[in-house]
């Protein structure tokens, strides 16, 4: 009986594994590989692949050394990364602490905090447009009421760049709060109580007990939120379209514009390859660290 089972099991599961591998190969490796391949060509999207010209690193050289819009988009991506990731995790930590001590009202507040995360980026973009609109927007209406100067939040490069960060933080911090709440709940009460008896201050308990316990959830959030932040497209597309000019453009918008707006598929693919490398460079080390730790 056991021999028969042993004989059947591998063949059945081998089929499943092969199907899975085929899907992964096609939808992950082949797509990424194709993107990298055309980034070394001048493909316009219409010529058959047999007729495209290989141009080596020309697209990359053009982007890195000559394209101002690439420089602006890259810096905007880094700005989003540098502000959105820590701010979302920081606010998430604050919210999760509040939820932790909220008692019976916790389910209500938890739902409220998580609600923005359940919305599509396009919906979030439109919602926040109503905050920033020049005449009817909530922000300018409030400023007007307080007799403070109004601004064109999304038309001025200085304000538009930062105005876009707020909805991202608003959306991600609820998710961060939920993940961190799980971490907070896993801290054994005995440790906290012994620390209290030993006379540890609130900050000391937070620094030496809470934070070390939240290390893995924070690393996990870092990987997830930094990936979302770097890949962001819809929200910016809806709110500013990358404008005024290219002042709020990011790499995903630039790559799309090159490929589908200019018919420079090679150049667009080069932007996306660089974006993927950037994302891997920033998120993968932490991801592998978590994997090694079995998280």
């Amino acid at each position: 009986m056991s021999n028969k089972r042993f004989h059947h099991k591998p063949s059945f599961f081998t089929v499943l594994v092969v199907i899975q591998l085929a899907f992964v190969f096609y939808f992950v490796f082949a797509c990424i590989g194709f993107n990298i391949l055309i980034s070394f060509t001048d493909w316009s999207g219409l010529k058959p692949l047999t007729e495209i010209n290989l141009i080596g690193l020309e697209n990359y050289v053009k982007l890195i050394f000559f394209k101002r819009e690439f420089h602006i988009s890259f810096l905007n991506n880094m700005l989003i990364y540098a502000i959105v990731v820590p701010a979302s995790i920081g606010i998430g930590l604050l919210l999760s602490s509040l939820l932790h001590i909220a008692g019976r009202s916790e389910p209500f507040f938890r739902t409220c905090y998580l609600l923005p995360f359940s919305l599509a980026y396009v919906v979030v973009g439109i919602l926040w447009l109503y905050v920033y609109y020049p005449n009817i927007g909530i922000l300018n209406t409030t400023l007007k009421f307080l007799h403070l100067p109004e601004r064109h939040w999304l038309s001025e490069p200085q304000t538009a760049r930062f105005a876009l960060l707020v909805p991202m933080i608003w959306q991600y911090s609820g998710f961060a709060a939920l993940v961190l709440l799980g971490g907070l709940r896993s801290i054994p009460l005995e440790i906290m109580e012994s620390a209290k008896i030993d006379g540890a201050s609130g900050f000391t308990m937070f620094r030496y007990i809470v934070l070390p316990h939240l290390r893995y959830p924070i690393y996990f959030l870092y990987v997830i939120i930094s990936t979302w932040a770097l890949m962001t497209f819809d929200l910016i597309w809806i709110m500013t379209g990358g404008g005024p000019g290219v002042e709020t453009s990011v790499l995903s918008i630039l790559g799309y514009k090159y490929a589908f707006g200019y018919n420079y598929f090679g150049l667009g693919a080069a932007v996306f390859t660089l974006l993927t490398l950037l994302n891997w460079g920033l998120a993968l080390p932490v991801y592998f660290y978590l994997q090694r730790r079995g998280v």
Binding site: S155, E156, P157, G242, G243, P244, G245, V246, E247
Partner: peptide, 8 residues
């Protein structure tokens, strides 16, 4: 794009 920057 260029003209929208010009506007600013």
């Amino acid at each position: 794009e260029i003209l929208s920057e010009f506007l600013t």
